[in-house]
Design a protein around this nucleic acid. Structure first.
Lengths: 140, 140
DNA sequence: TTAAATGCAAAAAATTTGCAGACGT
DNA sequence: ACGTCTGCAAATTTTTTGCATTTAA
């Protein structure tokens, strides 16, 4: 259980209940769209406004607390900023699963950037396919 | 110069001027947002409607002629479907550059998917950083 | 000739903004 | 107490839809 108060304060953000709830639902689910964040937070904080969700997503992204995960064919999802990793994106259910980065590919990307005189900051690897549980559903 | 008539017909789409212009501006620029496609096509075909751009992006994506390139912090761009490749995305100017995939990383992703029982269809690798020309601008 | 595509205008959906009051520090 | 944050409502932006007309095949 992360300490959201500290996380927010370290990033010059006031620790409001709204923000902590947003971080909490994202952390629990892993990756969420604006709409699903709104729905989930509304359950524990029914008076929250959609505008507050939007404002905070923007703010927390600027502060580096949240990261956008843009997904082909769907709305972007948001995750807590964490170690670089690979996304397995299910094209059936839209679910996103994290897998650790592999050193070998990291080195390749770093070398490529170097060679292109490209100042690399961040990598985003999305692998699109069908997750195990959707394969089972399709088969049946 | 690609033969857009053939490309469209092979994919069960009528070869309209609107479509060929859309494909042409995307091909020339490499990667374009909806808005920039509209602006560019409007220059050679002033009567085109934005709704036509939207309808055709959806259709051509369904037919596999176009591919969406979702980008963190910006609007999605669209490119012609082509061999898998890596995107260098400049966080300053938003430009996207293609670089060939590297076999070593491909194999790693394939192995990872296999191991996770994930039916891999498509890979999308975005490297975010600052392109050479923006580095020069910043330095000056 | 005919099914599909376009363009318009209107509708719907998504996101942003301004501001008064509430709240964290 | 102060400056930031929230929630509301309104505005703006983005995307989709329906329909009459046009067009490619």
């Amino acid at each position: 259980m992360t300490d959201y108060v500290t996380l927010l304060k370290e990033n010059d953000l006031k620790a409001t209940f709204q923000r902590m709830n947003i971080l909490d639902v994202i952390d629990k689910s892993g990756h969420m769209s604006v709409e699903s964040i709104y729905e989930a937070v509304s359950k524990v904080h029914p008076s929250i406004s959609l505008a507050t969700i939007y404002k905070n997503i923007v703010l927390m992204m600027e502060k580096g607390v949240l990261v956008e995960v843009p997904i082909s064919g769907r709305k972007s999802k948001y995750e807590l900023a964490k170690m670089d990793h690979i996304h397995l994106v299910c094209t059936e259910c839209g679910d996103v699963e994290d897998k650790p980065c592999i050193e070998a590919t990291d080195k390749v990307f770093k070398d490529l950037s170097m060679q292109e005189h490209f100042k690399l900051h961040k990598r985003q690897v999305n692998l699109y396919g069908v997750c195990e549980s959707c394969q089972a559903k399709i088969a049946s």
